[in-house]
Write a protein that binds this DNA or RNA. Sequence first.
DNA 1: CTGTTAGCGCGTTCAA
DNA 2: TTGAACGCGCTAACAG
Lengths: 330, 330
Amino acid sequence: MTTIKDIARMADVSRTTVSRVLNESPAVSKEARERVHRIIEETGYIPSEHAKSLRTKKTKVIGVILPRLSTETTTRVVSGIDRELGKKGFQILLASSDLNINKEVEHIKLLESRRVDGIILLATNTLEPIKTAVSEAKVPVIVVGQEFPDAICLMYDDFRASYDLTNLFIKKGYKKIGLISVDEKDEAVGYWRKKGYIKALEEAGLPIEKSWQAEGAFTIESGYSAMKAIWEQSDTKPDSIVSATDRMAIGAADYLNDVGVAIPDDIGIAGFGASELSQYAKPALTTVDYYNEQGGIEAARILLEEMENPAVKKNKKNILKYGLIERNSL
Amino acid sequence: MTTIKDIARMADVSRTTVSRVLNESPAVSKEARERVHRIIEETGYIPSEHAKSLRTKKTKVIGVILPRLSTETTTRVVSGIDRELGKKGFQILLASSDLNINKEVEHIKLLESRRVDGIILLATNTLEPIKTAVSEAKVPVIVVGQEFPDAICLMYDDFRASYDLTNLFIKKGYKKIGLISVDEKDEAVGYWRKKGYIKALEEAGLPIEKSWQAEGAFTIESGYSAMKAIWEQSDTKPDSIVSATDRMAIGAADYLNDVGVAIPDDIGIAGFGASELSQYAKPALTTVDYYNEQGGIEAARILLEEMENPAVKKNKKNILKYGLIERNSL
DNA sequence: CTGTTAGCGCGTTCAA
DNA sequence: TTGAACGCGCTAACAG
């Protein structure tokens, strides 16, 4: 691999001069500049960002820790991050945790060892290990999707969104509203979405019936099973289902279809996430749009701000907007 | 930021010894090792991979260049790459080209400047600039999805897949088979899938009718428009449509639905990609599964092999498997 | 088992 | 306008 030294020798100047040309310093004679440029052209020399970073302490790389690559939500967020960061010449170093909680912590260390300028964590839980890892990190960390007490967070308003969505059910005249949720370790999706649902029911004086509730695990299949469980375990059936994710809603709809229950005539259903699937399902699924790509953009902006201007506004909590998309499943 | 030097001083040993501890060299006394470990623990010291790479010439990072993050195909491939590479301790540096052809070339340089150990290019075209950029790269590059003459490639068998799929139409008794394709700059999707379609029709002696063909641009909307164009421009209507992508097929189905044409009763349709959408569309879409995640895994393996053992089997072309998924749209 | 010395490829004083 | 010298944090060769 050719280095700055080689270029210097070939162009008959010092390394310093080559460095100056590379960094477009004006203090170089035209002749020297041209000679250097020519040699660089000929050799196809590419300066090492590594060596550069070693001096400058900046890598222009930020790390993104995510649960899985293969969900729409995460890819949209990452896409937003990438678009925003790309403008400023940053690149993304990926670290997928495969839903393995230990890995999230490891990845923070790993990214730090690579001296990333900052980290964006698409969080899936609020357990202690990851929270302390974030607090102890020596680079700025932005947490997306969950609330961490001592960190800069960017959260979806899961409680209010769920509350609003459930109220939409109520407005439409549904009385026996069931729920498919997920493990509460995922506070945002498991706990807050359930909480919003319950709050709305309470305020409306509607029954909160255990047998109309079941837990899934994000997948379509788990939604199918959860719906099946509800259907088989409930004495009087629910007349509608709030599903904590679109995919589980799709699975639930599949089950209902299999047992000959019509949507929305016999039962209403809605999800969260504004997935593509929700849009093209038949009937199209009512859902909550979290504007994930915008979320990624915001996360990137906040991180950039924090990197330029650290410690100014720590502990800040940012709440993202959301919107209800009414379609034909309700 | 604390460095190896600080640790050495605090543990009262030389930097070398610290380095040895870090790299688990056996040639360190138990006492020294423990002292160093303790100090590392206390300070939260994390070695700089940068400085390390500068010496060792290995970064344990590979670059992935992709058109857009937000398509199932790419995320599946990247997911496969990540899974396979993760096992060996590699990480992925992302470079998304936003479908901008110039950016692909830039990104190769950029990744080289970061001294990635290798590059996987999810290629979208076979134009000259990117081909020469790949040839001139100083690190191993694996090209996925397109055929580059002088590079190590991993290709889907688009021609045969399309040929097989079209023959499935023929077997089912369709006679007036139309096509929604894409720009032929994308050789794999645009050119070869069209070619396979034509070959099958020719062999069966079926008409190849221009007015049954239109070009989309991957999106659902463009599929809708393409179908509309076909429907409005053709005198006698086609009885079926091969769509070069699932998403365009979904769009086409939407249009047909809008004008009251029933699938599969009035017209048959099929796509490529085995997208989730295809599975949950009503009716479920017949499609070609390219096993993208497996493709990513293979790409990673080939790259690892090439990095360990360069120049042994250059110019190798690898063809990936595919499978037809028959559902209810035909 | 341990430390000294010498770079890796670059940016940055400081003098000239 | 230029270059020598130094250091970024680390590994590796060589002596001890």
